[in-house]
Amino acid sequence: MKHYEVEILDAKTREKLCFLDKVEPHATIAEIKNLFTKTHPQWYPARQSLRLDPKGKSLKDEDVLQKLPVGTTATLYFRDLGAQISWVTVFLTEYAGPLFIYLLFYFRVPFIYGHKYDFTSSRHTVVHLACICHSFHYIKRLLETLFVHRFSHGTMPLRNIFKNCTYYWGFAAWMAYYINHPLYTPPTYGAQQVKLALAIFVICQLGNFSIHMALRDLRPAGSKTRKIPYPTKNPFTWLFLLVSCPNYTYEVGSWIGFAIMTQCLPVALFSLVGFTQMTIWAKGKHRSYLKEFRDYPPLRMPIIPFLL
């Protein structure tokens, strides 16, 4: 059985960083990364991007050496992705923050609204209902991160945790300040508006959870398998008939419901920014589905049925 020789060059300087002799033909890129780490321990596998061309796409960890368009002496180019952190850690951090930050404003801890309001309670029912909904949303997200989601990528750049936390924590503080303010004004149409908004919120939260469970069942634990998601017997998953990412559709719907319930401008802005970002993600995933699966359902749109 022939063996391969693998040289790894710096993608920027073309400097030879490592030479691997007698590499098995069936070795994966993940195994080559581990061998590279032995000579350069500062670059652990998650930091490494190996590619066939200095400006090309990163090879997948599961790619097999003998199936790549290389000879028995293969040249790979290395790029440092920077310090990495696990997706689970990032999600837990960015979701735990809003949960606790919101509660600080809800309980009106000292130095927020003035001494005479310390630890007082709002007289408006919608304020307490909003706290329950907000807390439920982020507790749900935390539990899904721990027990439901299966991540195709193990890590992301460390800098992302600061960007994500600034976004989630900042908006949580902004909306919580106004919703729990002693001078907060309840919704214009009173109980009817709150009940309608609560119904929207609850339905969308159930829908979002149902989609996450359906997506989880598509991917076996520990794998990166991708399949076309289809509706199940659960009615909340029937939205798969019309959109590629109904989890985002339901998520946006939840925040629209919360915005109607609280009639709070920061919540509306958070919903708008979230919708914009999720639309970008949904379009990317939709394109990926179309590219990977020739039999992908043609009627589906990325996030909004028939429109977007």
Rank of each mutant, 00 (worst) to 15 (best):
A96N: 14
I32F: 04
K233N: 06
I211M: 11
Q42L: 11
T13C: 14
A282V: 04
E144Q: 01
M175K: 10
W169A: 00
K12L: 13
L307Q: 08
P305N: 14
F100M: 03
S271F: 10
T120V: 01
K291T: 08
T120S: 11
A83H: 15
L239G: 14
H149I: 05
Y167D: 04
K22W: 05
H153S: 04
I228T: 11
H134R: 03
R141D: 14
P246Y: 01
L196F: 00
L99E: 00
Y178V: 06
E15Y: 01
L183Y: 15
T262E: 01
C18K: 01
T120M: 11
F136M: 15
I228F: 10
F147C: 13
G284C: 11
V267I: 03
L142H: 00
F201K: 05
Y296C: 04
A173V: 09
V88D: 01
E31N: 13
S254Q: 02
L146F: 11
L104F: 06
F209W: 00
D21R: 04
T37C: 09
N180S: 07
K291V: 09
G222F: 13
S223G: 08
P298Y: 07
L50R: 04
V202Y: 06
Y44L: 07
L299Q: 13
L269I: 14
R51E: 09
P187G: 14
K33H: 12
F147S: 10
V273Y: 09
P25A: 01
A46M: 04
H115N: 03
Q84N: 04
H153C: 06
W87T: 03
L92I: 10
L308Y: 14
T120C: 08
L239F: 08
H115Q: 09
T225I: 06
P297A: 04
I211D: 15
Y184L: 15
T185F: 14
G207A: 07
T93A: 11
H181L: 05
E31H: 10
F240V: 13
H128L: 05
R47P: 12
P297T: 01
T237V: 03
Y189P: 13
F19I: 12
S152Y: 02
P235A: 04
T72L: 00
R108T: 00
N34Y: 00
R14W: 12
F19S: 10
F209R: 15
F19M: 07
Q193K: 08
N34I: 01
M278R: 05
A27G: 06
L103T: 13
L198N: 14
N180C: 01
L206H: 05
D21A: 13
C18H: 13
W169H: 11
P229M: 04
C165L: 12
M156T: 06
P220S: 09
R150N: 02
P246S: 05
K116R: 10
W43N: 04
Y167F: 08
F171Y: 09
E292P: 01
Y289V: 00
P98D: 07
I8F: 05
E24A: 00
L272F: 13
L146C: 14
Y289L: 04
I211Y: 12
T145R: 02
Y77K: 15
T185C: 10
I29Y: 09
S58P: 12
D118Y: 06
Q193Y: 04
G170P: 05
T73R: 03
D118E: 05
F78L: 10
V6R: 08
E24W: 11
A46D: 00
V273A: 10
A173K: 12
L104R: 06
F105C: 12
L81V: 03
T237S: 07
Y95W: 01
Y189N: 13
L242K: 09
S271A: 12
D63T: 05
H115Y: 10
L196Q: 14
I203S: 09
F293V: 13
Y113L: 04
V273S: 09
I303Q: 02
L50D: 11
R79M: 14
H212L: 03
K227R: 12
L196R: 07
C245Y: 04
P302Y: 00
T225A: 12
Y95P: 00
L218S: 11
F136P: 15
F100Q: 03
F240T: 15
S121Y: 04
Q84S: 02
I228V: 11
K67F: 08
K60S: 12
Y102R: 01
E62A: 09
P305S: 03
E15W: 08
I29D: 04
L129P: 05
H124N: 00
Y177W: 04
S152Q: 11
V64D: 13
Q193T: 06
P187Y: 15
K38N: 05
M301V: 09
I303W: 02
Y177Q: 08
S49H: 12
H149C: 01
Y178R: 03
A197Y: 00
K60D: 01
C245G: 11
E62R: 01
L81W: 13
V267F: 04
K16W: 05
K285R: 10
P98T: 03
S49R: 00
D61W: 00
N34R: 13
P182H: 00
R300W: 03
L20T: 13
Q48G: 00
L76R: 01
L35Y: 09
